[in-house]
Amino acid sequence: MRVARVALPTTVDEAVVALRDAPGAQLLAGGTDFCVEVNFGLRRPPAVVALRRVRELRRHAVTPETVVIGAGTTYADMGDPGLSSALPALAAAARTVGSPQVRNAGTLGGNVATASPAGDTLPLLAALDARVVLRGPSGERTASLGEVVTGVKTTSIGPDEVVVEVVVDRRPGPQQFVKVGTRNAMVIAIASAAVVVDVEAHEVRVALGSVAPVPVRATAAEVHIADAIDWRAAGGPRASEGALARFGELVAGAASPITDHRSTAEYRRLAVGVIARRALERCVARAA
């Protein structure tokens, strides 16, 4: 009889060593996806490296330029005042994840590494061009979110690598996260959108969830609306009704959704255009 190996490291370096020493070992963070797969016979880990005790993973740092969020930061943590004032759309996204119990356990690093098309934090991270810091036996590397999340539940994270933290640049201006589900709480996204307005750079960043294998940026919509917004209007940026409508259409055009048991491709495309436009309208006034 073999005895399964379980490592309960308290530092990232210990976790990396434990991963190296137990080939085939799987990383366990908040467990909110991992354990479901185990419970239903879809995952049979020969060994586990559990990250819940790694305190350094749970830190975050907000500076004037960046926000650094430890991979062990839970969805509940994302509502902490410091973090949520710097990244209100991340807090909003976190608030839509599962149940309060799940939000107490699930982590940012887990959301990235699981790489579900419906991962609720991913659209905002994509909109902010987040960098993911990974550590392995040969040291640390930084990769863009797009480089890490490569497809439906697939990533470029090495079997010996641990997600350490996610880094985003701060963007002055409003941001929003909106998510469509068939229930008013505790629901997987049918479509989601994060909108970030940078009032200094005069940029609008839009990323979409659940409408493509990976989070996608609606670049045509971004370019269109950045041009269309009157950034210097009294009372803040504003856009015309026509420009906003066009923005919604371009967002819908950026989606490449599928039909599944949760919804249809057509609805996802329709909905993502509507919610992106509404999110933008909360950030930018409508010109009379």
């Binding site: 309960l8 467990g31 586990v48 149940s99 309060p100 119990q101």
Partner: peptide, 16 residues
């Protein structure tokens, strides 16, 4: 002291 779902915690991960 944090409310979680016990089904989503690996038994061995509750050590300590």
């Amino acid at each position: 002291d944090v409310v979680v779902c016990a089904c989503l915690v690996l038994g061995v991960d509750a050590v300590g």
